[in-house]
Nucleic acid binder design. Structure first.
Lengths: 250, 250
DNA sequence: AGTCTCTGTTACACACCGTCACACGATTTA
DNA sequence: TAAATCGTGTGACGGTGTGTAACAGAGACT
């Protein structure tokens, strides 16, 4: 009985040797090889046994739920560095598909949990990730609940502008890897409305198109104001990289 | 240095003595006295230093965010037994107010974290709570993103019916402690729409009013169908793990 | 080239839901 | 008791966003 338990742990012990005491949560994923997915390919499906967690290393993923008559809700887009499948129990709550060609590392749940067990320093990082996920979900609820089409699109563009520029002020260029349908399903709108709204923003000189999937932000202040968050432009450019550190739990 | 660390822990050690090795996460809250709040009173505010976690022991709480021009989004209602303030970092992400008179236990973050540290058996429970919160948030995103007014109201009624009845099939009676405005801000609608929708459900004999804040569910199957989740009545009464296959897209 | 397919844009009628207005009952205040 | 206030219900109306189109542009293929 003991020997069985021991051999079951052997694999992960090996992995641990390769990366002794990782400093950052991502390093736990270094031991496993990367997998590739083509654009449009599914990674896992809502309701599947949630056996793995993932770390995106290249490309963009969409996570979504489907209801009744085929209505789709995209609950998030995941970029390089993001972890997927953390905050769930035995089954995936959503499906995940590649938007662009994607490379990711897949780690079985058990060694992941054991790593958290073995290196307590990783737990605050893990918890911080989950909290960010929660905060993002709440912002999304605000968007879906009370924002107009224009505010939704503006918010989305700002989101991508910030993401592309790391945590820096605001990037001037945005790349939208996903289709208009993806955007629509993320923003709770239709493709037509998304299209129209973008056209309107372009007409007003807030952004300017550089191909279908790229835009330049001409008036960042204006765009920010259109988000309807009550933030002013100054609030965002001075915003020091606010290191919100999880205090909790150790 | 060691002695300092030791004395800092002394208080919590005392608490631990009172309740040695709690089996359930809630028991961690037993050591602190209960506080009372009147209906409408605030418990904490978005942006406050998140120093405490709470356990509701009586009454109903609403948690909400406010944006720009005063628009309010209620992200959830919390009932007896629910924990508040788990999934956040240094500051509260939302405000909390009493809907009804509320009694709750307030526990400082530190002893709570220490309890999790000391009794690892509690950690899965903690994690499960956070996951439930996440799952709820995602269902809410689906509701706000893609459901019609009628589906939203129906979903809300079903939610309360299930909650009141524990996890049992479906309660036949629903009590709505909150105002129509609260419902509207939770469902992403206006009071008028909520009101009209309820009237319509009553007219069709799906539910029947028993005062302003109480309803009887006359046709549970019908109500469930109106939720737009694709579940049938039978699915919910003998809740088997439903295998959902995504058909979509590609 | 030419054709096909896929994605994105634009137009127009319509539906749902929000806005505004007022009525009603219950409770509080004068 | 009357008046005021609050929460709620209901009606008329209009706007935002939707659905169904047709159309345009880009890329893939023969």
């Amino acid at each position: 009985m003991l020997s069985v338990a021991y051999s079951a742990e052997a694999k992960h012990v090996t992995a641990a040797r390769l990366a002794p005491q990782p400093e950052r949560l991502e390093e736990v994923f270094c031991a496993v090889p990367r997998e590739s997915f083509e654009a449009g390919e599914g990674v896992f499906w809502e309701g599947d046994q949630a056996d793995h967690v993932f770390k995106v290393s290249e490309g963009v993923l969409r996570v979504f739920k489907i209801i009744a008559d085929g209505r789709r809700v995209i609950t998030g887009f995941l970029y390089a560095g993001d972890l997927v499948g953390l905050s769930l129990k035995d089954r995936y709550l959503y499906s995940a598909e590649a938007v662009t060609p994607v490379r990711l590392r897949r780690l079985a749940r058990k060694p992941f949990a054991e790593a958290l067990e073995k290196w307590p320093d990783l737990r605050p990082q893990f918890f911080a990730r989950v909290c960010d996920e929660m905060a993002t979900a709440q912002d999304q609820m605000v968007l879906l609940s009370r924002k107009s089409a224009e505010e939704r699109v503006a918010t989305f563009l700002m989101l991508l502008a910030r993401r592309l520029h790391g945590c820096h002020p605001i990037g001037r260029r945005i790349h939208l890897p996903m289709s208009r349908l993806d955007m629509a399903d993320y923003l709770g709108l239709t493709i037509e409305t998304v299209s129209r709204t973008i056209t309107k923003l372009v007409a007003r000189g807030v952004i300017s198109p550089e191909g279908r999937h790229d835009f330049a932000i001409c008036k960042p202040g204006k765009l920010l104001a259109l988000c309807g968050d009550g933030d002013s432009y100054e609030d965002t450019i001075d915003r020091e990289p606010k290191m919100r550190q999880a205090i909790w739990p150790h």
